[in-house]
Structure formats: C-alpha cells, structure tokens
Simulated scan of single mutants.
Amino acid sequence: MAGAFQWGHLDQGNIVADMATAVAVYANPRDEIVIRRQGGFDAEDDVVVVPLKVAEALLRRMENLIREIRAETALS
C-alpha cells in the first residue's frame, strides 16, 4: 500500500466509523439565523447566515423536502 492516503478512493466497506458533525442553529446579534457545522480537525466551520426575511421560505422548503424524501424512502 504505497502512496498517499485518500479517503475518496476507499470502498465504503473499509470505513468502520463515520465522523459525527455537530450542527448549531442560533440567532446572531443582527437577528439573522446562523446555521453552523463544526469543521473537522484543522478545517474551518461551515457557516450559513439566513436573513430573517427569507427564513420562513427556507423552512417551508426544508419541510417540503423532508416530506418528499420520506415519501420516496417509503416507496423503496
């Protein structure tokens, strides 16, 4: 097994434990909604800032996607 290690080239059967990533949702001082995913090891956190005026539309879209995914999963 020579060469540099690359996660992307592993067969999924070789991975014995998935890394759990923490996700936080909170309001910032400007009353925007922040969705933050913890970065792994030396990586920066991923951050999405959602202005309040579009937050409800985002929530509705996410709820619709959840229903669609659940319906598709139930069919398979």
Rank of each mutant, 00 (worst) to 15 (best):
A55R: 01
A74E: 07
I69A: 13
D45F: 07
R67P: 00
L58A: 08
V23P: 00
D31K: 07
W7S: 13
S76T: 14
R30W: 01
A2H: 11
A27Q: 02
P29E: 13
I66R: 15
D42F: 15
R30D: 11
R60Q: 15
R70I: 01
M19D: 08
L10W: 02
A43R: 15
E32D: 15
V34Q: 07
V25S: 04
V16I: 10
Q12S: 13
T73K: 12
L52D: 12
E32R: 11
V16C: 04
R67E: 04
T73P: 00
E32C: 09
D45W: 03
I35N: 04
K53I: 07
A71V: 05
I66S: 12
G40E: 03
V49I: 10
V23Q: 09
R30K: 13
L58E: 06
D31W: 01
S76H: 14
L58V: 12
V48L: 10
V16M: 12
I35L: 13
V47L: 02
L75R: 12
M62R: 04
L10G: 05
G8F: 00
A27T: 03
L58F: 15
A55T: 08
M1D: 14
V16D: 05
T21K: 13
I33A: 03
A22G: 13
Q12Y: 06
E63Q: 09
D42Y: 10
A4L: 08
M19L: 13
R60F: 12
E68V: 03
Y26R: 06
A17T: 06
H9G: 14
E72N: 09
M1K: 06
V47K: 01
T21D: 10
I35H: 01
A74W: 02
Q6Y: 10
E32N: 14
I66P: 02
D45Y: 02
G8Q: 01
L58N: 07
V48W: 14
A17C: 14
M1H: 13
L10H: 00
I66M: 11
Y26D: 01
D18W: 10
V25G: 02
R60K: 10
F5R: 05
R70A: 03
G13S: 12
R30Q: 13
E44T: 03
Y26S: 01
